[in-house]
Amino acid sequence: MASAIVVDDSPIMRMQLRNLLAQAGCQVVGEAASGDEVLALYERHRPDLVTLDIVMPGKDGVTAATELLARHPSAAVVMCTSLTTRDKVVACQKAGVSHYLLKPFQPERAVAVFRHVLSRGAGVSAGAAR
């Protein structure tokens, strides 16, 4: 089964993401409420997917994604945020994120995006090889 870590400062949002990821066939193996923990959490679990909120206490999601992808270019990162400004989207795209989902989620669409991103990483990540 594919694995994911969920980074969002809202416990309710983390619960919703756990449910959506489960529908996409993905088990959440780690959670955090701040971008500060992303790199350590990723290197501990080597998940197939990372979901990242942008506005969080401590390190924001764009900075966390940029640092994570600079060190682990194969990481599959899906930004999950309510921010709709073009500069944020462009910054995330330049960082190399795999997708950008807007809150509130459209559940079927979110599940399809997770499946799509996971299918692109199949056979590449350490988690998928376990």
Binding site: V89, Q93, L101, R109, H116
Partner: peptide
């Protein structure tokens, strides 16, 4: 979300 799906695929 339509813009973003076109941009990132899927």
């Amino acid at each position: 979300q339509d813009d973003l799906d076109r941009l990132f695929g899927g």
